[in-house]
């Protein structure tokens, strides 16, 4: 992580960090990179690759549509809704 990557991530995520926040974030990632370096140093050549963290597979359901959830209940917590739509600040494609 460096300043250039951070600025790019800010842009992609539509975030605007203050200089202080940027410094904190860079410091945070520097610590995490140091942690990862410890993990990276472990010899895992003989360890089988883990596909998934949970010991489960094929958790599947049949293709059957059910009654939809009540729209008004879903939108009850929305900051803004109009005519059945969620309403958000204007977004340009």
């Amino acid at each position: 992580m460096n300043k250039e990557i951070l600025v790019r991530l800010e842009k992609l995520n539509q975030l605007r960090l203050t200089e202080e926040q940027e410094a904190e974030t860079l410091a945070f990632f520097a610590e995490r990179e140091a942690d990862m370096a410890i993990v990276d140093a472990v010899d895992t050549q003989e360890v089988e690759r883990m596909v998934h963290v949970m010991p489960l597979e094929n958790v599947l359901r049949e293709d059957r549509a059910i009654e939809p959830f009540e729209r008004e209940a879903l939108q009850a917590g929305a900051p803004a809704a109009e005519d059945g739509y969620w309403q958000v600040p204007r977004t340009v494609d």
Partner: peptide, 10 residues
């Protein structure tokens, strides 16, 4: 894109 309210409907 709702031009009247200048918002986006989802």
């Amino acid at each position: 894109h709702d031009t009247l309210s200048n918002t986006t409907l989802v």
